[in-house]
Amino acid sequence: MITAGVDVGAETVKVVILKDGEVLASSIVKAGLDRQKSAEEAMGNALNAAKISKSNIQKITATGIGRKEISWATDMVTEIAAAAKGANKLFPSARTVIDIGAEESRGVKVNADGKVIDFAKNEKCAAGVGSFVESMSRAIETTVEQMGPLSLKSDKIIPMNVTCVVFAESEVVSLIHAKQTKEDIARAIHEAIATRTTSMVRRVGIEKDIALIGGVANNPGVIERLTQHLGTAPLVPKDPQLVGALGAALLAAS
């Protein structure tokens, strides 16, 4: 059976195509204002890579914040269910899944079958998610990709009273004026994300193993800080941003 998962996120649209539970192809494209169009493009890329046509796909499940915009999806699931299922496939031992995307972060407690037991999300604040890193990278005149490596060069913890992205930017500006290095500021930003995320995940209870997924899991600076706060290194898959789409594709097949 061939199924597909489409994860329509705030920053990117991800598609995973599965055949009998194994990945045939995947793709990621930047999400434009027209999510449907972005999803079509992502699906087209994945179909080309898989060398199949749309008609070969039996079921398509959409997830992500823009899932309701995908008219051609046969089903929808929430990001929570998709994250749990995808993480369970990659790391069956994981009982806690941390998913940090561009717009939202989530903590999910799962059982051995990948069923959601409890979950928590960030509330009305981007100060613990990917768009925060992006915004702060601009403030210190670097790129998102460089934030992690920069952060790992620092051995200093500068506290940030992060209550929201706007205030955080003011704090970063103050740190620049205080002649703090880019490396130290990058680490402070990741520290802020890690404390916020850990606090949120504690609401559902932290149980090992812990899987870290979502685009922010590509950032080694966040992983380093989260490892400190969680007291254990999270399991991070290759292509962590595709796990939601993978979960959706698995749910489509189930």
């Binding site: 929430t78 990001e79 929570i80 269910a81 069923k115 959601v116 037991i117 979950f119 999300k121």
Partner: peptide
Amino acid sequence: RIESFMES
């Protein structure tokens, strides 16, 4: 959030 809870 409600949909996630219902699914759970």
